[in-house]
Design a protein around this nucleic acid. Sequence first.
DNA 1: GTGCATGCAAAGTCTTTGCAGGATA
DNA 2: TATCCTGCAAAGACTTTGCATGCAC
Lengths: 141, 141
Amino acid sequence: MQENDVYRNLLTQKGLRITDVRVKVLEILDDAESPMTVEDVFTCLRNMMIPANLSTVYRTMDVLLKNGLIAKTTLLDCNKSMYEYKRVEHKHHLVCIACNRMISLEDCPINDEYAREMCRRQGFELTGHKLEIYGLCPKCK
Amino acid sequence: MQENDVYRNLLTQKGLRITDVRVKVLEILDDAESPMTVEDVFTCLRNMMIPANLSTVYRTMDVLLKNGLIAKTTLLDCNKSMYEYKRVEHKHHLVCIACNRMISLEDCPINDEYAREMCRRQGFELTGHKLEIYGLCPKCK
DNA sequence: GTGCATGCAAAGTCTTTGCAGGATA
DNA sequence: TATCCTGCAAAGACTTTGCATGCAC
């Protein structure tokens, strides 16, 4: 149960109660290679014998998101929200325009100076950024 | 009617029929300073005395999008689709995380080499990219 | 005149909410 | 025990679709 403790601690640190659903959702998203939809997580929970209600999953995502434990993304050709475990401040993806497969990118080519300059010009206070690179994945080429 | 001719020509070039709604939607999006929701465009049409049905506006967006005349975006904290006139191949935005105000950016800090390299590693064929910079706008600071 | 575009209404999908019962601290 | 979490069902928001009518070419 060593890994579970990580998620339990995260929840405790944020002043959130520890429940099976929350711990498992964090675990699922942490293990995922790319962002997941609420439906994906819901199905995953079922398979792990933790049959949570769909609305509970939505509420869980909301709580984890508001507490900064996960991140939210939306794809161009898909109106669903996607969530992923928050490892770093921001995250970038490679997205297949045909099948919507997403691959997370580790690198970040955006230097803060550029973002800061854009914000300065418009009087914005910089908080973050998101980059998506689109293409056709090997299967869809 | 000189400007309208631009939109009429665009439609004709794509083999699409010219209708009041299509021409006006292109004009509205072209005049807009930032991406608009379907609802925004719908209201705008009403004000211009071209009372189209909401579903017609959705269908119009779809046709214009599929023919590459407009571009689609989705914001992080808003599940609505946003559309804008397609002036260039890709588009970047400054987004206020509080009020969702969007400002289009002209510059592009992403060099194709970076995007191409990321694609090469994963076997993707590059088609484009999207960058959003998040912050707090002057009114929301 | 033919084929595509539109209006209208209905349905579909994703997400949110109210309330009562149950679990956590 | 008090508070927060969950399940269930209903509603809400955004979007899509079927069909008959109307318009562009």
